[in-house]
Nucleic acid binder design. Structure first.
Length: 170
DNA sequence: ATTAATCTCCTAA
DNA sequence: TTAGGAGATTAAT
């Protein structure tokens, strides 16, 4: 990044069969992805006003999201700009990215894998703070004994995503 | 420095 | 099945 990087953010809507998501980019990558809000969000600037780099990342994101929503492995991901998170949160998010499609893990298990076996409650908090849901698969984390657990994006989404990936609950 | 709020988990009733 | 507390982390007061 050069010296006169004026943090500029570019929102881009992504229409899917499940509704319109909203991606937000900075000059370093994808910053956040929001679930459909229901309201009209025609806040995407014209392509001509966006840097070519970001337009390219966006194409990758669109494909990745479509694949993820279909329960398939995305061919590629855009750069995930997660520097807004604390070290702890980033450690959790990195761990989430290692869970493969169809697999699930418990909050307790994530806690141990990042070397904080007692930070179980905090792992839940970090999952809820995940700025890029779906692509960073926070929905693959279940409560103990494979109970569904919670989801700030709405439990219907969590169930839907897990179902499409062929994960088993109880 | 304190408090309140989390996508938890285990125990006991 | 429900009630309550321990516990780590974070944002807000």
């Amino acid at each position: 990044m050069n010296s006169h990087t004026r943090n500029r953010y570019f929102p881009k809507a992504i229409a899917t069969p499940d509704g319109t998501f909203l991606a937000l980019y900075s000059d370093t990558g994808l910053v956040s992805l929001s679930f459909p809000t229901g309201r009209s969000e025609g806040k995407s600037p014209a392509d001509a006003e966006m840097p070519a780099q970001i337009r390219q990342w966006h194409r990758v994101t669109v494909t990745a999201l479509e694949c993820a929503l279909a329960g398939r492995v995305p061919p590629a991901l855009p750069p995930l700009e997660v520097s807004s998170g604390t070290d702890f949160q980033q450690a959790v998010w990195r761990e989430l990215c290692r869970i493969k499609i169809g697999e699930t893990r418990s909050y307790d298990e994530i806690a141990r894998r990042i070397g904080r076996p007692n930070a179980v409650r905090a792992v839940g908090g970090a999952c809820g703070a995940n700025p890029i849901p779906v692509l960073i698969p926070c929905h693959r984390v279940l409560a103990a004994h494979r109970k569904i657990g919670g989801f700030s994006g709405g439990m219907d989404w969590k169930r839907k995503l897990l179902e499409r990936e062929g994960a088993t609950l109880r």
